[in-house]
Simulated scan of single mutants.
Amino acid sequence: MKVILTSAELARVVDRIAHQILEKTQGAAGTVLLGIPTRGAPLAHRLAARINAFEDIDVPVGVLDITLYRDDLRRHAVRAIGPTEVPAEGIDGKRVILVDDVLFSGRTVRAALDALSDIGRPSSVQLAVLVDRGHRELPIRADYVGKNIPTALAESVKVTLAETDGADEVKLIGGAA
């Protein structure tokens, strides 16, 4: 096991993504952040808080549960369905930035795009991830990446956040020592 991002480094990465969002969206006007549970939701809230701290802009934040849209439901244990929380302003005509912790095969993002189409019609959709570990199975790429971590298929990336796990850290687990 190897620590890839410490708590302080993770905070700097979130700050950098928040700045990139502000730059690429010309001040985040018309932008909504939707976090993909479990760890994408607190990351979306952190990004919104940092954007507010930098520019005093309130970016609406929601949560997009993708459980019923996954293509691996038959392979894994039953998952509890979580809430989808759409900001009061909705997403129609807005730029939606999906937020997740790790981008791997792209299947979670595909499920999120399907779920998104059931709750509204955004003007555009972007993707922000804390870690991109490669090994895509679908033609999906992130617009905002905190850290690229090339991995072997036998390895995994474990993100822990204070909100869900009690501490902030990103670790690389498994593979060759």
Rank of each mutant, 00 (worst) to 15 (best):
M1E: 12
V3A: 11
I4R: 08
T6V: 05
S7C: 05
A8K: 12
E9C: 05
E9R: 04
L10A: 05
A11P: 00
D15V: 00
D15N: 13
D15F: 01
D15C: 03
R16H: 09
R16F: 01
I17E: 06
A18Y: 11
H19T: 02
H19F: 00
Q20M: 08
I21K: 11
I21A: 09
E23S: 14
K24M: 05
Q26E: 06
Q26K: 11
G27S: 06
G27N: 02
G27Q: 03
A28H: 10
A29H: 07
G30P: 15
V32G: 10
I36P: 03
I36R: 02
P37E: 02
R39N: 07
G40Y: 06
P42S: 13
P42Q: 10
H45G: 13
R46Q: 14
R46K: 15
R46P: 06
L47W: 03
L47R: 02
A48H: 10
A49S: 09
A49P: 01
N52R: 09
F54S: 15
E55A: 14
I57H: 15
D58N: 14
P60Q: 13
V61Q: 03
G62H: 04
V63S: 13
L64G: 03
D65G: 01
L68C: 12
Y69T: 09
Y69Q: 14
R75I: 10
R75T: 12
A77T: 02
V78K: 12
G82S: 15
G82C: 13
G82A: 15
P83T: 06
P83R: 15
E85V: 09
E85K: 14
V86H: 01
E89Q: 02
E89V: 11
E89T: 04
G90N: 00
D92L: 15
D92K: 15
K94L: 01
V96F: 01
I97G: 11
V99K: 03
D101W: 00
D101Q: 05
V102G: 03
F104L: 14
F104D: 14
G106Q: 01
R107W: 10
T108G: 07
T108H: 11
T108M: 05
V109L: 11
A112V: 01
A112L: 06
A112P: 10
A112C: 00
A112I: 08
A112Q: 10
A112D: 03
L113C: 07
S117G: 12
D118C: 03
G120I: 08
R121G: 13
P122S: 14
Q126L: 09
L127I: 07
V129R: 08
V131R: 01
R133N: 06
G134M: 11
H135N: 05
P139I: 07
P139T: 08
Y144P: 00
G146T: 01
G146D: 06
K147E: 08
N148F: 14
P150F: 05
T151S: 07
A152F: 10
L153M: 03
L153F: 00
A154D: 03
E155D: 00
E155P: 04
S156M: 03
V157S: 08
V157N: 00
V157D: 02
K158M: 13
L161T: 10
L161P: 09
E163L: 08
T164H: 09
D165C: 10
D165Y: 09
D165V: 12
A167M: 13
D168G: 11
K171Y: 05
K171Q: 13
L172K: 03
I173Y: 08
A176G: 15
